[in-house]
Amino acid sequence: MSTTARDNGAAGGQVPDRGAVSREIAAVGHADLSPRTLALVESAFQERLERLERHVGPGPVTVRCGAGAPLAFGRAASASGRRLIVVVPTHNGVPAMPPRRDRMAAGELLNLADQARLLPYEPNHRDSCVGADERMIAAGGLLLAAWDGSPSNGLDATAHLVAYARARGIPVEIVWPAGAERGAGEAVPAPSVALPAGGTAEPPGARSSRVHCRSVLAGELLDETDEPVVKTYPIVRGTGLPVFGAGFSVTESAPDSVRTFENGVPVRTYGRKRWTGAGGSPRGDGRDPAP
């Protein structure tokens, strides 16, 4: 389906036609957002999705697995009730390990995702990542970009991706709220905390994560995870893959809850056991006690 290029700018402007957003909404942007800007972009993106919902209806949001703008977009899409598709790098058909700076964001995005899309590219190679973004944009009907207007460089290619979409007649909307700024982009701030009924929640920044991914990535994130979630599908595929396909310290988890989808797939949630040392003092390293 052909679309008409229409750049709505940071202020909102015109709304893309229904045909454009009946396809996927691709989202790209800077990875080096400051923690404050990450929250600003998330809020602005959620507002933009709600406006699109009123005018053109729902459409899935697609992001490439990574920190910064993709994480802000993923959180906003989930909060807006949109389907979230996360593009995951693969090597020889097996999910590849993202760079260390992206791993915590990758775990959260995969937990929020309705679908993980496997795509062969090298997550540590800039040009390979740009190629993956181009394929994601070309498959969509609208591009939302967290872009400060700066040109592309050896690390960031957001300007190139905006130009790529415009050149192919794909509508582009820029999301860069007032007060937004670039930062180190190394730390991934904790998601918004919701207070449970009758209880308290951990303060923002407290160690809290959930692994909801596959094999190698799950293994790499296991030592940083407090609550593993395991889905069991009744499918046999070749020799299969290990549940945790990477090295990690020996851990033990305790069953927390089990729920079942309508199609019969069980989802088990586990809590990490924290062993105590001599005298009952906590060891806090999550490992099994010495024999």
Rank of each mutant, 00 (worst) to 15 (best):
residue 280 G to V: 14
residue 194 A to Y: 13
residue 178 A to Q: 14
residue 145 A to M: 03
residue 37 T to H: 13
residue 197 A to T: 13
residue 81 G to C: 01
residue 39 A to F: 09
residue 256 D to R: 13
residue 99 P to Q: 04
residue 193 V to W: 02
residue 236 V to D: 13
residue 4 T to H: 11
residue 120 P to G: 11
residue 4 T to Q: 09
residue 203 P to H: 02
residue 86 V to K: 08
residue 16 P to E: 02
residue 177 P to C: 07
residue 24 E to Y: 06
residue 271 G to M: 05
residue 128 S to Q: 02
residue 158 T to N: 03
residue 172 V to R: 01
residue 188 V to P: 00
residue 120 P to N: 12
residue 226 D to F: 12
residue 54 R to N: 03
residue 127 D to E: 15
residue 122 E to W: 10
residue 199 G to W: 04
residue 286 G to Y: 14
residue 184 A to N: 14
residue 220 E to C: 11
residue 52 L to D: 08
residue 106 A to V: 15
residue 117 R to Q: 12
residue 138 A to P: 02
residue 23 R to H: 01
residue 49 L to Y: 12
residue 242 P to V: 04
residue 147 W to G: 11
residue 41 V to K: 15
residue 216 V to K: 07
residue 246 A to W: 06
residue 131 G to L: 08
residue 112 L to M: 11
residue 67 A to E: 01
residue 288 D to E: 03
residue 63 V to D: 04
residue 245 G to M: 00
residue 285 D to G: 05
residue 127 D to S: 14
residue 5 A to D: 10
residue 88 V to G: 02
residue 236 V to F: 13
residue 43 S to A: 15
residue 110 L to A: 05
residue 179 G to W: 12
residue 55 H to T: 11
residue 94 V to R: 14
residue 258 V to W: 08
residue 112 L to R: 07
residue 216 V to R: 13
residue 98 P to I: 03
residue 21 V to W: 08
residue 91 H to I: 05
residue 221 L to F: 09
residue 230 V to N: 07
residue 168 R to L: 08
residue 42 E to C: 14
residue 161 L to R: 09
residue 81 G to M: 01
residue 244 F to W: 09
residue 82 R to G: 03
residue 268 R to P: 01
residue 53 E to S: 07
residue 253 S to T: 15
residue 27 A to F: 10
residue 251 T to V: 08
residue 122 E to V: 06
residue 211 V to D: 00
residue 125 H to A: 15
residue 140 G to A: 15
residue 287 R to P: 03
residue 192 S to Y: 12
residue 240 G to A: 11
residue 200 T to L: 04
